[in-house]
Design a protein around this nucleic acid. Structure first.
Ligand SMILES: [Mn+2]
Ligand SMILES: [Mn+2]
Ligand SMILES: [Zn+2]
Ligand SMILES: [Zn+2]
Lengths: 144, 144
DNA sequence: AAAAGAATTGCAACTCAGTTGCATAAATTT
DNA sequence: AAATTTATGCAACTGAGTTGCAATTCTTTT
């Protein structure tokens, strides 16, 4: 199923930006920040605000889930629909060095007890540290 | 044990700001954002940057633990030492309406499996929604 | 097909949290 | 007391995200 069809099916008009952003997220396979998306060559011709609004539209349509990096920037993540929704209720890992985030799929978010009469709207579990790539790069540097 | 003594024991000089900020956090008993701290009457005479630096000093000394609200602002939390450290490895709840955060002590953060060779430095679990106070206020509004 | 209406995009200006550089003011050390 | 170190204040800056409004582009109606 093409990105355009997915957009239509989700009830949003398949405009250029939307198609481009959704494709970009599918290709990345990991959560991207607005900055990372906007920096991509193919995105240069769209306004930063438009990209923000596009991301929120995709989120509203249920095609994208969001997580916050502890660096203060939100990440947006989408997986093709054949991967059964990937609703986003899994932990995420953020590398403090390169800023890349990964979905830790295959694990569910834990059940958390909240005080009486508190209405829970969502939750997010972010693990942070140094990713494999950055870690080995560091090793190499030390040994030289 | 007074805040001043606690500071000294933790190896930082007990200056005015540090004493004031630590006391404020103790009194609050819940994580406060920089903004919430700076807004307090007794804090007006300190520069905002000084308050930031003070918070980082306290964090470095192990007297304060930090969590990020999904509203983009960090919270700083401290508990008197008799409460055996309260190391901060518990979930936190953030109210999207009033912005207040609460420690969900009594629950530990879950163990999370990470990819091979990833070095974990920390993790945080944030639950968000509407707190009891804001929820009941909403109810009252509906019924009038 | 033309006109009217609705949704989308671009641009400029703005907010808000946090940071950086540097000068001044304490403390500490010598 | 002088030299050195540490803490504070002030101004300017960065970076993520938001808001308002005008210009486009679609879609629907006539
Ligand atoms: Mn994810
Ligand atoms: Mn806490
Ligand atoms: Zn990395
Ligand atoms: Zn509340």
């Amino acid at each position: 199923m093409t990105a355009e069809e997915i957009l239509t099916k989700a009830g949003v008009r398949p405009t250029h930006v939307r198609d481009a952003v959704l494709k970009r997220l599918y290709e990345a396979g990991c959560p991207l920040s607005h900055g990372e998306i906007a920096a991509h060559p193919g995105m240069k011709r769209y306004d930063r605000v438009t990209i923000y609004r596009t991301l929120y539209t995709l989120e509203g349509a249920g095609l994208v889930h969001t997580v916050q990096g502890i660096d203060g920037a939100w990440r947006f993540c989408a997986h093709p629909p054949d991967r059964t929704g990937c609703p986003g209720n899994h932990p995420h890992f953020l590398c403090l060095k390169c800023g890349k985030m990964q979905c830790l799929t295959g694990q569910r978010l834990p059940w958390v007890e909240v005080p009486e009469r508190v209405r829970v709207k969502g939750k997010q579990l972010v693990i942070y540290g140094i990713c494999t790539a950055c870690g080995t790069a560091e090793e190499r540097n030390k040994n030289k």
